[in-house]
């Protein structure tokens, strides 16, 4: 695991570096005596663990954690046990070491680091949210649709109709263009004029699919792909 050490005391950095050197899985990439330099480093490098002193002049460890967009796992190092409660508010902080650190306690922290899985960060969540949404332009208004609400899309001349659970929207666009915006895992074109949300299928007959209350034709050329995707018993 790649790690960095942030502590304004040289002796403390030397101690943590030495502890890491005694564990073959740990690789100290850099050490910093201030948080600002560490932030600059983290903007261009990806690392697995940060050993972070809470008490640094002008910029606490918690300030530092809050500035990170996509923080790795963090092990706090300090003498102030009072901060322990605050540490539990940050999911990214996986352990809390009190100085002076023994090798045995340090090993336990590394085990925690190894066995802790962080939930996706706010940034990652935001990206994921965006992927699950589609904005359609209707009368100069951008209307947000959830991908999961879309049942099917039908081509109608110069327009497409987006059928959702709540409503049908008529949009001046092409099936080809909207297809590029839809997740392939969920949506499938089953006819020259239809794309369906695969998760909304009720049943399938010879040449048609029932999506909620809509019967959608299946073209001969698209049928094999549809059948391939089905979890057939």
């Amino acid at each position: 695991m790649n790690c960095i050490i942030i502590d304004d005391e040289a002796t403390a950095r030397a101690v943590v570096t030495q502890l890491c050197e005694q564990l073959p899985e740990m690789d100290v990439i850099a050490t910093f005596d201030n948080a600002i330099d560490a932030i600059k480093f983290l903007n261009r490098e990806s690392i697995d663990v940060i050993f972070l002193d809470i008490h640094m002049p002008g910029f606490t460890g918690f300030d530092f954690v809050q500035t990170l967009k996509d923080p790795p796992k963090i092990v706090l190092i300090t003498s102030d046990t009072n901060f322990a409660i605050d540490a539990y508010e940050y999911e990214t902080i996986v352990d809390y070491l009190v100085k002076p650190i023994s090798l045995e306690r340090f090993k336990k922290a590394i085990q925690k680091v190894k066995h802790t899985t962080l939930r996706p960060t706010a940034t990652a969540n935001a990206a994921s949210e965006t992927e699950n949404e589609l904005y359609i332009n209707i009368d100069r208004r951008l209307i947000k649709l959830k991908m999961t609400d879309i049942q099917l899309i039908e081509a109608k001349g110069d327009y497409i109709e987006v059928v959702t659970d709540a409503k049908t929207y008529r949009v001046h666009n092409t099936l080809k263009k909207i297809k590029e915006k839809l997740p392939e895992k969920t949506f499938l074109q089953i006819h020259r004029s239809y794309i369906i949300n695969f998760t909304k299928i009720i049943d399938i007959e010879d040449n048609s699919v029932l999506i909620e209350k809509n019967v959608v034709p299946i073209s001969r050329s698209n049928r094999p792909e549809l059948m391939r995707r089905l979890n057939l018993l």
């Binding site: 002796t11 030397a14 030495q18 502890l19 050197e21 090798l103």
Partner: peptide, 17 residues
């Protein structure tokens, strides 16, 4: 204890402190 026989670390640490 920390040095665990690593004389180089011990000397380096003494220099730092």
């Amino acid at each position: 204890d920390l040095a665990a026989g690593d004389g180089v670390f011990e000397q380096k640490f003494i220099r730092i402190i």
